[in-house]
């Protein structure tokens, strides 16, 4: 006889296993594209343009953009994994398989989010390994790197789930990444330090949550950041809390999945 906790853990594990099986089965769509895209970024931005930019805070431009490009891959992979997987089961109505079962909303959210976190970290790690062929990134504080990669993938997995819950058609799945996520990522300090921006744009950049993720992550490698690292961690933890609550509320209400 299993306890309720054991049963819920098996349900959670089932969702995670299913998610891993899904994104590894279609690895040419999930794991390969970010590696190719970021390799091109390393070549174009790092090698060709970077050689003319020089150093930022004492590190080469190529080394400077590595954490940002890794984080970009983490953000996109975590978000896309959850939004496409959850929307796909919703669209096919196979979401009903889990809804009719005793699996709690917490286990459902945790399972899908864990799938996104694993894919985010996996893709981020692959991109980081690829970056070693172009530069020699150093590690200033491994704990900070791990904290930021986990918190960022959590934030975007949870955000992907909110998007999937509200999405009614396939177009709704791509609106947020195209019109919100990509611009915020490019303007989030991946390719530059905000100190190089004019005053008003510096202030404006501070409203971009991705700035805190990229800079905190970069701090883990080189020990410098445009923003407070402790403050960034608190901000990300708060964001995780808000998004988790939003998902729990939407699930309980049955938004997009129950009538």
């Amino acid at each position: 006889m299993r306890t309720v906790f054991q049963e819920q853990f098996i349900a959670f594990e089932t969702i995670v296993r299913r998610e891993i099986a899904r994104f590894t089965r279609i690895w040419t769509q999930t794991l390969l594209p970010p590696v190719i895209t970021q390799s091109l970024s390393f070549v174009i931005f790092g090698k060709f343009i970077g050689s003319q930019v020089g150093h930022i805070n004492g590190v080469s431009y190529m080394a400077f953009i590595v954490p940002g490009l890794v984080m970009m891959s983490v953000i996109n992979s975590a978000f896309t994994n959850v939004v496409s997987s959850f929307f796909s089961v919703k669209f096919q109505r196979s979401i009903e398989e889990v809804l009719v079962s005793p699996t709690t909303h917490v286990a459902i959210i945790a399972g899908y989010v864990m799938g996104g976190v694993i894919r985010g970290i996996l893709v981020g790690s692959i991109v980081f390994v690829v970056s070693i062929f172009f530069t020699h990134p150093v590690i200033h504080n491994l704990a900070i790197i791990i904290i930021f990669i986990i918190l960022t993938s959590l934030v975007f997995s949870l955000a992907g789930l909110v998007n999937a819950i509200f999405a009614k058609k396939f177009d709704d799945v791509s609106i947020f990444p195209t019109f919100v996520l990509t611009p915020l990522t490019y303007l989030g300090g991946v390719f530059y330090s905000i100190h190089s921006l004019p005053g008003v744009w510096q202030q404006f950049s501070l409203f971009n949550p991705i700035l805190y993720m990229v800079n905190g992550f970069r701090y883990g490698f080189y020990g410098f950041s445009d923003v407070s690292v402790g403050g960034s961690i608190l901000f990300l933890v708060a964001l995780v809390g808000i998004l988790l609550y939003a998902n729990l509320y939407l699930m309980k209400k049955g938004t997009g999945i129950k009538s």
Binding site: R2, Q6, E7, Q8, I10, A11, E13, T14, I15, R17, R18, A21, R22, R25, S88, V89, Q92, R93, S94, E96, E97, V98, V100, S101, P102, T103
Partner: peptide, 27 residues
């Protein structure tokens, strides 16, 4: 429950569909 509309995940194998469903019940 066997619903009126087909709601199987068309990307999964039959055996996996059953094992996954069991997992949702803590099996």
């Amino acid at each position: 429950v066997v619903p009126q509309e087909i709601n199987l995940n068309i990307f999964e194998r039959a055996i996996d569909i059953l094992v996954t469903q069991a997992g949702y019940y803590g099996i």
